[in-house]
Design a protein around this nucleic acid. Sequence first.
DNA 1: ATTCTGACTTGCT
DNA 2: AAGCAAGCCAGAA
Length: 145
Amino acid sequence: MRERALDYEEAVLDIVSLIPAGRVLTYGDIAEILEKGGPRQVGTVMSRGDAGVPWWRVLRADGSPPQGLEASAVEHYLEESTALRPVANRSRRADARTRRVDLSKSRWDPAPAEQCALQQVRAALKNDVRIGASGLSEADDGVDP
DNA sequence: ATTCTGACTTGCT
DNA sequence: AAGCAAGCCAGAA
């Protein structure tokens, strides 16, 4: 019964693990979903090691993979057929380093059920989870009095 | 309490 | 497209 409140790190990792193959979210998106912290906090969590989550599906606001991991991230994109942005013709460096994900095409657009799952993670982070046993299901939406 | 740091963002050149 | 500065949020020193 791990239905206790999630700490920030767990919440972030949960979200990341929910991103489908071929889709991506930005650090900022995740912070927004959790309604806590900012892009940097999410980045900090991710930097602690992959923890078995698809880290390459989390990118910067401009569509570029996390610093230092561009090369291996691109391999995953090719593998998952993630929509990449066309390489600038002028650029000499048409390498993995210049490649960016096309956010307008690959950004994850969660279906209703998925949004629900995301909200559950947020709720679990916010206070505590009250699913199960006692059956008190009032997860206050977080708005302060 | 204050300062530094970072898998970040945005806006301006 | 690229580089730079400032803003931002939390945790660590």
